[in-house]
Design a protein around this nucleic acid. Structure first.
Lengths: 181, 181
DNA sequence: CAGTGCATGTAACAAGTTACATGATTCC
DNA sequence: GGAATCATGTAACTTGTTACATGCACTG
């Protein structure tokens, strides 16, 4: 069975507060970036589909603002569907990590090229780690609602997985540098 | 620009030795499972496409065997294309982790339900870790070719990322259990 | 008055899964 | 002779990205 996860990402965000498509994009970019992404071509059509299905409604804010900002809110039906999804266990986690695939096939290019690639990736991860730390700090400070504990936990996941990856890269670079190939 | 990564996964595996579609499926399942997957509906059409493009060739093994096993080998052109891909840096790594998404939206179901989910995931990861260790051990023992260093490194990645995830799950479960929500 | 950010959207395409079909061979 | 596994494949479908188009509002 296929399931449109975009639908549930949107629904979940709308449980926090009513949002426009643009708001959703921003939230994903600012807070979920390290474990979620959406493209425009998926986001806007899905918003329309969810409206048709009555899982969300377009708030009538024409009076309060002149901006072309379509603000959506989740409906009771939407909440029910979100909870159904939350309780489903599918585990189908499809892993496709192109970086590891390239490393696995490393013998097809020179050792030095691979080492350079690994170093670049490592730097990128260090940068990411910094961002995740900032997100986590911000969340800890602003912590007030019952939701924030979950946000902090996911932020910590980003931090600890980035840390583990960085130290693996470090080790791997050393191993390759020492290796006689 | 979109790129068909399946193509390169196939090419890479064929640099090890000539393989049939079924062999490729098995290798992915046995050795790459924790960072790569392919479905039948993607694999077989891609094999045909690669043959048309002359990146791989169907070996004529009709004489040596009566099995309907189509054995493919990579061509020089295929090797070149693989190397081009290996040297490309795209970084586009699209993260979409449904488990984290569900945790992020945790406040929509009871704390206890979330804890149960986390515990199940943790058990699953412990199981996976065991498998990765077996793969790594096997690789270390059979280590002979210049390729095996790369295989061992990727296996280690699986191990260290699983370990980091497990300890994060452990911590998160404790934090949630203590939390008053 | 140009540049940046706000804000929404679509058409064309690529990528990938699912569920099925088919038949041979091997092992118990 | 039945089950499992070997082995290849396709049709229908979903999911997702890319690249574009449009226009307003604010700021320096």
């Amino acid at each position: 069975m296929k399931q449109n996860t975009t639908k549930y990402a949107i629904l979940g965000l709308l449980t926090i507060e009513p949002l426009s498509g643009y708001d959703i994009k921003k939230m994903i970019k600012n807070s979920l970036a390290y474990f979620w992404s959406e493209s425009n071509g998926q986001l806007y059509p899905t918003l329309n589909q969810l409206t048709k299905d009555n899982w969300i409604v377009l708030l009538d804010n024409a009076a309060t603002s002149k901006k072309p900002s379509n603000c959506y809110a989740i409906t009771d039906l939407g909440r029910q569907e979100l909870q159904k999804w939350m309780r489903r266990e599918e585990e189908k986690s499809v892993h496709r990590d192109e970086n590891l695939l390239k490393l696995f096939f490393g013998s097809n290019i020179s050792k030095e090229e691979t080492i350079l690639r690994l170093k670049k990736r490592k730097l990128k991860l260090i940068e990411n780690l910094k961002k995740y730390r900032e997100i986590a700090n911000k969340l800890e400070k602003e912590s007030h609602s019952s939701q924030s504990i979950y946000w902090i936990l996911t932020a910590n996941y980003g931090i600890s997985s980035a840390r583990a990856a960085i130290s693996w890269y470090q080790k791997s670079i050393l191993i390759l540098e020492k290796a006689k190939i």
